[in-house]
Design a protein around this nucleic acid. Structure first.
Length: 553
RNA sequence: GCCCCAGUAGCUCAACGGAUAGAGCGCCGGACUUCUAAUCCGUAGGUUGGGGGUUCGAUUCCCUCCUGGGGUACCA
């Protein structure tokens, strides 16, 4: 049981007890809350509940607080219960409870901090969803890291999560892709032919064409551009998967847009919208009456060519998600899709579904800085930086960390120099170095000839240093962080937590030595136990962030 | 015009309606015979863009205005 949840239950019971004892009047008890005070002077936990009860009880908040506090003095996990103006009750955990966290962390291992607010509910996280027409870009990477990190948090919070990638494997873009590759191929064959502005200009197109030329010579010249499109799309798609895997993102499902056509769901959904009167024809196109749902203008869903716009399959896809029975769906969208998300939900609503099961998480752009200079990027000119290039330059861990180092609502300025800097200025190294320092203690320990498991029965009551206590209290916050991440669909909280945990660790490492000669033997064993737990906890937190946990750097 | 996001310390950003608004960087000043100084300790720094409102209490919620960014396709 989470200690703050326990405290909430006991607080509620204390209010009841005070009412029974007559120190509080009878009233229906509203929601009570436990929070972490910002200032540690105000206890490890606190509640402002007496302030909220003032009206109901018709008493001064401080008196209410005292009446409740009097009922909570016997709880064994609490060391102190204090009333503070203007009506807070501050709680301090007992030393024994805090020291006992060391064993809790070691017992739970990679499940430490897990909660069960998901209770096995089916959830889906959709992110990246780039079309197979080019490499993964930085913007898509951000969505991917955010989505994957949230998925990890949701799993740790008891959800049954499917991580899903949706991509367009047919239609105009693939046609353009095929034409682009074919053109490059024909150039290889010596033909005088140029790409148009609409074609994909990137060097990867030429690479694919060159490879085809090397394998098949000039024998493919009469193949239609669809032939080239199919090959290119499969190759690029495969490459995207590998790129994402290199930063520890692996999808459970790759959902093909074309399957919505093959199964007829696009036309079926359109038929329902038409049947309900949400569609009208104008200028040879079919328009979806989004103004019925608060949009400022109606939107085309079938072009005058008879081909649906991207909105129609997007709506069908979300209709499909609804039918698959997800209790919760989280979609990540980059800045270029901010406007379309609401329209898709309008479609799902028009199809007769309550859209509250879908949450859309928007994020802002990522820009790169090197030597203090902002790098100019343009997708059209093909001068963008790809995920692969970034992995090659800085490695996967800094990418994972910095992509969730800000709230999605803030722009990220990715500093290429900082990302590889090996110092306390770089949070990635700062955090990982905490685990490295723990590992170092264990190496030296065994070198000094001690038994590897000498700490297993250590007397944890010897962990009396304030720094050790602060670290363990911070560890206790992991559950709250996971809950917050899931409630807000906001993965960035874990990066702040990891940093704070490290900043509690390093001072402890400086002050609470293990192998130094002046440390008494029993304290030495207790501290070794502590660092064993600390190491375990960093491994846990790094795993939640999809980062590696190196023992040496 | 309309929609979304942002505006908090010199800079980059946190802060699930609570107490004296916090970190990092930068600045300034300190600390290594002993587990990696890849680190630690300390000082300074604020009218939370402006103005109203709701509340016992607002950076947080509501209204309005200002500034910056993005979007506003019969592209996806």
């Amino acid at each position: 049981m989470r200690i703050d949840t326990q405290l909430e239950i006991d607080l509620r019971q204390a209010i009841k007890n005070a009412q029974t004892a007559g120190t509080l009047p009878e009233f229906e008890i509203p929601e009570v809350s436990i929070e972490k005070p910002r200032d540690p002077e105000n206890g490890d936990y606190a509640t402002p509940t007496p302030l909220r009860l003032a009206k109901l009880a018709r008493m001064a908040p401080v008196k209410i607080a005292q009446a409740i506090a009097d009922q909570m003095t016997a709880l064994d996990y609490l060391g102190e219960v204090a009333v503070a103006a203007p009506g807070f009750i501050n709680f301090r955990l007992s030393s024994a409870y805090i020291q006992g966290l060391v064993e809790q962390i070691l017992e739970k291992g990679m499940d430490f901090g897990s909660i069960n607010i998901g209770a096995g509910k089916k959830a889906q996280v959709e992110c990246v969803s780039a079309n197979p027409t080019g490499p993964i870009t930085l913007g898509r990477t951000r969505g991917g890291v955010m989505g994957d990190t949230l998925a990890r948090a949701m799993r740790a919070a008891g959800y049954d999560v499917t991580l899903e990638y949706y991509y367009n494997d047919a239609g105009r873009q693939i046609t353009m892709l095929g034409e682009s590759v074919k053109t490059r191929y024909l150039q290889q064959c010596g033909q005088d032919i140029e790409l148009s502005d609409e074609h994909y200009q990137g060097a990867y197109i030429t690479d694919i064409a060159e490879e085809l030329f090397q394998q098949h010579g000039e024998s493919l010249q009469d193949q239609p551009s669809d032939y080239f499109g199919d090959i290119a799309k499969d190759q690029i798609s495969q490459h995207q998967k590998e790129s994402l895997k290199s930063i520890n993102i692996e999808f459970d499902v790759y959902f093909r847009e074309n399957s919505l056509y093959e199964d007829g769901q696009v036309w079926e959904a359109l038929g329902i919208l038409e049947g309900k009167g949400y569609v009208y024809e104008k200028d040879g196109a079919k328009w979806f009456r989004t103004t019925d749902f608060g949009d400022d203008k109606d939107r085309v869903i079938v072009k005058n060519t008879g081909e649906p716009t991207y909105r129609m399959p997007d709506i069908a896809y979300h209709w499909n998600k609804a039918q698959r029975g997800f209790d919760l769906v989280v979609d990540f969208f980059g800045p270029d899709h901010h406007a379309t998300a609401p329209q898709v939900l309008m479609g799902v609503q028009a199809l007769g579904y309550d859209t509250s099961f879908v949450r859309t998480v928007l994020h802002q752009i990522v820009s790169l800085v090197r030597s203090g200079e902002q790098l100019k990027m343009s997708t059209r000119r093909g001068t963008y930086v790809t995920l692969d290039e970034l992995v090659e330059e800085v490695g996967p861990d800094p990418i994972r960390y910095f992509m969730i180092s800000r709230s999605g609502n803030s722009e990220i300025i990715f500093d290429l120099d900082l990302a590889v800097e090996q110092s306390d200025k770089n949070p990635v190294y700062y955090i990982q170095n905490a685990l490295v320092r723990c590992a170092g203690i264990f190496r030296k320990w065994e070198e000094a000839g001690y038994a590897p498991d000498a700490d297993k029965d250590a007397d944890l009551s010897l962990l009396t240093h304030e720094n050790e206590k602060r670290f363990l209290l911070k560890a206790l916050e992991l559950s709250n962080v996971l809950e917050l991440m899931v409630d807000e669909s906001a993965p960035h909280h874990i990066s702040f937590f990891a940093y704070e945990l490290a900043s509690m660790f390093h001072p402890t490492y400086e002050t609470c030595r293990v192998l130094h000669s002046e440390v008494p033997e029993d304290v030495r064993l207790a501290r070794l136990r502590f660092y064993r737990a600390a190491k375990q906890l960093f491994a846990r937190v790094l795993d939640l962030m999809g980062m590696s946990a190196p023992e040496v750097m």
